[in-house]
């Protein structure tokens, strides 16, 4: 599983990255968590409000910081 956290480096994006890593640890999912700060890559997903979460190439949500529990739900 490939998880990407899209964000241009603001505080919210860092929180989402941390939450995602925790969620992956908690569930023991075999996934790599990447932080994507490159604007053309972010735009390729059609995301206009950061931070956003992409799992295996699919945008799960954008413009919010999801909690660890919420993200765990998306990993299952």
């Amino acid at each position: 599983m490939k998880i990407e956290v899209l964000g241009t480096g603001c505080a919210k994006c860092k929180t989402l990255y941390e939450n995602t890593k925790k969620a992956v640890e908690e569930t023991g999912t075999a996934a790599e968590v990447l932080k994507v700060e490159d604007i053309p890559t972010i735009m390729r997903y059609g995301v206009m409000s950061t931070p956003a979460l992409v799992i295996d190439g699919q945008v799960k949500f954008s413009g919010k910081v999801a909690s660890v529990v919420e993200i765990m739900g998306m990993l299952a």
Binding site: K12, I39, T50
Partner: peptide, 13 residues
């Protein structure tokens, strides 16, 4: 909703 940190992707979009 708008956050200045999203200004760049928003502008490009």
């Amino acid at each position: 909703p708008f956050c200045s940190c999203s200004a760049v992707p928003l502008f490009i979009g």
